[in-house]
Design a protein around this nucleic acid. Structure first.
Lengths: 202, 202
DNA sequence: CTATTCACATACGTTGCGTATGCCAATTGA
DNA sequence: TCAATTGGCATACGCAACGTATGTGAATAG
């Protein structure tokens, strides 16, 4: 017995996910041929259908993997940062930075929602949002952020803005410059969450 | 000569767009069969390819039409509202309301971006953003909004948040309640744009 | 050592897109 | 008024990709 059975199975699963992730991230979900990228992993569609049911199922698996990685990266940055509020801001900007990577942008923000629907309804891919939500809750309890808003709702809105932010930077012909503008505007929006001596609009 | 030629042509174009719009809005772009919805318009794919080149071209035409309608509706609401700032806020919330309609959500915010890429790069579908941008610019000149941010960038971010807002409401099992929460959070974010005696985060 | 399971491959049918081609009505010009 | 031509749209074909049904061989169980 050279290799245990379970190991081999897990290995092919991993190979399929890796191959699909690459294909989805570069070619795009709709344009990625299952025959092609399964072959690039030394397998056939037979394995794919056996493990994931269909193309969508494989996409879900890819998304779950990426989501886990993103959450890990956010939590990493989370540790440092002097104040809770700045911590939260860093969390958001880290999110934007990650969204700059073509693979993440394509799979998590474009093809994913188009194929699987509202990300908020995804079963196993909301680690980042959960983290942001809990931090927002704490900030509310500490009186830093206005208490009138629902944390998860706010997180989702910020998330939407982040995704736009990333796209704007990514598609710019001068990413450096636009990055500055985008992050400035983004932080400005975030300040709306802060509790403060209320100024009135006129 | 019962009907002028040009009229007939425009008519088939309109029929194709209408049929596609309905199919894309309900079935979804990828799942909508060109044979099916051209047949439902009493035509064939021949007409489609003649007028729009391919499926994507037809989607572009549909999007251009919807964008025009959305801009018109926003401008309608634009007229009233006591102050410029509230006008701007109304503009945003109207945008959210429109994004609640399944057809708009599906075509403009999900399938559209997935198939055609970043909406900011769409040639003929940015009327709403343009309107918001110009209003933001005016508000800056009047000193209502902080001057440090780029108007179009801010518009895009808000746009992203709006789309998330709409999705959250649309997918809720209690749309009334979540609508309140979402709009509250959204307006809170918008306040971040207001110029005010600066409070410091701690 | 036999039987059974199951991971994965192969083979097939179906669907849907894009292109090449054909046809017929409407315009154009003399 | 009558050819000639344009072009709007349909028909026919080929191809690629998905999903399913079936087959096979190796590992495990009894």
């Amino acid at each position: 017995m050279h290799k245990p059975r379970k190991e081999m199975i897990a290995e092919t699963r991993a190979k399929l996910i890796a191959a699909a992730r690459h294909a989805f991230g570069t070619t795009g979900y709709a344009e990625a041929s299952m025959d092609d990228f399964t072959a690039s992993a030394g397998l056939t569609r037979g394995a794919l259908y056996h493990h994931f049911g269909d193309k969508k199922g494989l996409l879900q698996a890819v998304i779950a993997e990426i989501d886990g990685e993103m959450a890990a990266r956010v939590n990493e940055v989370a540790a440092r940062a002097p104040t809770r509020w700045l911590h939260f801001v860093d969390e958001c900007t880290t999110y934007i930075e990650m969204a700059l990577e073509p693979e993440i942008q394509r799979i998590m923000f474009r093809d994913g929602p188009a194929v699987l629907g509202d990300p908020a309804q995804w079963p196993n891919a909301n680690a980042c949002i959960a983290s942001m939500t809990s931090h927002l809750t704490t900030l509310q309890e500490e009186g830093v952020v206005v208490s009138s808003l629902d944390p998860e709702t706010a997180s989702r809105l910020i998330n939407g803005a982040s995704s736009q932010a990333a796209q704007r930077i990514a598609n710019s012909n001068d990413p450096e410059a636009t990055s500055k503008k985008v992050v400035t505007a983004f932080k400005q929006l975030l300040e709306g969450l802060l509790r403060r001596p209320g100024p009135q609009p006129n």
